[in-house]
């Protein structure tokens, strides 16, 4: 059963085509990593999945419901099923880490404060950051901010996790730690995950399926093993890191 299906999605900004008839399917419980070079529209693609960007043409289907045509109010309730880890964390910098993680719970539940505090502590422990509730985001390193952002994304126990370049800009050790953390979290909680990245190691270690985005289209969508053996010259060039 396809949980998410993108059908012939087109998106252009100021006449520049970013997505050009893109098709993609994501199955329930699957981890799909979308690889592609920088500037190929990976983040734009990810934002389509949650209705942050609407396509010019085409369908973004979640369990058969087209998010592209959903009224805003219904789109908001759909978004509660998703957790979104932004490239730089996107923690609200006027709030403490604890308040950031409590934020979606305060907005969407009527839980008492004690219960919310308990969940915040649990989620922070889950991402290996216990006891940082009272720190401001600016007091944490990039890797720690990403972990805290992951804790916030997991706060409402989402069914689907979206990861935007989770390892970009991190040192090799933190990259490995974040990679393991994502794998443990997604597999442990049996979530469906869509990860966009240009980190080949991450893709090979994490993915059930790798999709390759090139010139606004998904050129191939296959298992990590067959992806590495792909005969497509664009894929081989990307894997080998050969310049144009």
């Amino acid at each position: 059963m396809h949980l998410i299906r993108l059908v012939d999605v087109h998106k252009a900004f100021n006449g520049f085509r970013v997505l050009d008839g893109l098709n993609l399917t994501v199955k329930q419980g699957e981890i799909i990593v979308i690889l592609g070079r920088s500037g190929t529209g990976k983040s734009v693609l990810l934002k389509h999945l949650i209705g942050l960007i609407r396509p010019d043409r085409g369908q973004v289907l979640l369990e058969g419901v087209d998010l592209a045509r959903l009224p805003e109010r219904e789109l908001f309730s759909v978004r509660k099923r998703f957790g979104y880890l932004f490239q730089h964390g996107a923690l609200l910098d006027s709030l403490t880490i604890g308040q950031n993680i409590a934020f979606p719970l305060q907005e969407h539940t009527s839980w008492p404060r004690s219960q919310i505090e308990e969940v915040v502590a649990t989620k922070l422990a889950q991402v290996g950051l216990p006891g940082v509730e009272n720190k401001m985001p600016s007091e944490l390193s990039g890797g720690m901010q990403k972990r805290a952002a992951l804790a916030r994304a997991l706060a409402l126990d989402p069914e689907i996790m979206l990861f935007d370049e989770p390892t970009t800009g991190l040192d090799p050790i933190t990259t490995t730690t974040i990679r393991q953390l994502i794998a443990e979290t997604v597999r442990g909680l049996k979530l469906t995950a869509v990860v966009i990245s240009h980190d080949i190691e991450l893709a090979l270690a994490l993915a059930d399926v790798i999709a390759f985005l090139h010139q606004g289209k998904i050129l191939t969508q296959e298992s990590p093993v067959s992806f590495q053996l792909s005969p497509l010259p664009e894929v081989q060039q990307f894997l080998k890191g050969e310049p144009d």
């Binding site: 309730s77 979104y84 730089h88 910098d93 979606p104 907005e107």
Partner: peptide, 21 residues
């Protein structure tokens, strides 16, 4: 300046992703 910074650092998108307008 505050809202502009929130916009360019994706904090506004993060609000939308958390279903907060």
């Amino acid at each position: 300046a505050e809202l502009g910074t929130m916009r360019v650092t994706e904090q506004v998108d993060a609000l939308l992703a958390m279903a907060v307008h």
